[in-house]
């Protein structure tokens, strides 16, 4: 079985803080993996290592058959991986000086040398898919948070990634907008996209995830099918975390 992501003995320190401890994690094509854990547990750092936004200290990491060295990875090597890996951020990070459509067109034109008309056609199709084609000519600041995050998803999809990383995609949203973003992600999962999702949306995790991973203080403490992790957590740390988050 070829894995899309393969981590072995991954370690990372921020100064004295040991943020990732011996992480072993393999992800198969088409798999939806949801990573849960308290804030500061290292779950965002973990997925940021996958596209090299974060360097790691020791261990091995292979993304889409492309080895990603711990430190000093060449910019070329990083670019190869990043072309295959889309990322959606908590704060959307849309480009405020470009229209919604241009946000989606930028990377295909710059990285894949797509023509203006190709890129535009693809951008409109993707915006259609996330339900905001009618906002294409607006600037990001004119859109609601939920709409902005859907644009960010379309922007990442424009590169035809083999893997999508979601770093708390709904944490900065007003409650009434969380649903529309999760809907788009649910669709994406249904279509077979490989996804790594860091989230606090336990309902989404239970429904969409193929596998749920619980991280505590930089370690994978428990993982398995959502029913197993949510209904019969084996580790007592998982039990107390779930007791805290599911109470509300």
């Amino acid at each position: 079985m070829t894995h899309i992501v393969k981590m072995q003995g991954l370690n990372k320190h921020f100064g004295d803080l040991h943020v990732l401890k011996d992480i072993d994690l393999s992800i198969e094509p088409g798999e939806v993996v949801v990573i849960i854990g308290a804030s500061g547990s290292g779950k965002s750092t973990l997925i940021r290592c996958v596209n090299g936004l974060e360097e790691y200290g020791s261990g091995e990491l292979v993304v889409d058959n492309e080895p990603l060295a711990p430190k000093g990875q060449s910019q070329k090597g990083l670019a190869i991986i990043r072309k295959q890996v889309g990322m959606v951020f908590q704060q959307f990070n849309l480009f405020p000086h470009l229209t919604v459509k241009k946000n989606v067109m930028l990377a295909p034109m710059k990285v894949k040398d797509a023509s203006q008309s190709e890129a535009e056609k693809r951008a409109m199709a993707l915006l259609e898919r996330v339900g905001i084609a009618n906002q294409a000519e607006k600037y990001p600041s004119q859109l609601s948070g939920g709409q902005q995050q859907r644009v960010a998803i379309a922007r990442a999809l424009a590169m035809d990634p083999r893997l999508m990383l979601f770093d708390e995609p709904t944490s900065a949203l007003d409650p009434e907008m969380i649903g529309e973003v999760l809907d788009v992600m649910r669709e994406l999962a249904k279509e077979g996209m490989t996804m790594m999702v860091v989230t606090h949306e336990m309902g989404f995790a239970r429904e969409v995830a193929d596998r749920v991973i619980y991280i505590h203080e930089g370690q994978i403490v428990e993982q398995g099918k959502p029913e197993a992790v949510f209904d019969n957590p084996e580790n007592e740390r998982t039990q107390s975390f779930l007791a805290r988050v599911l109470k509300h």
Partner: peptide
């Protein structure tokens, strides 16, 4: 904001781009 460069890099753009 650093998130702007991170978004660009994550899309596969080079540092210069």
């Amino acid at each position: 904001d650093r998130g702007q460069s991170e978004a660009g890099l994550s899309l596969g753009l080079s540092r210069t781009q």
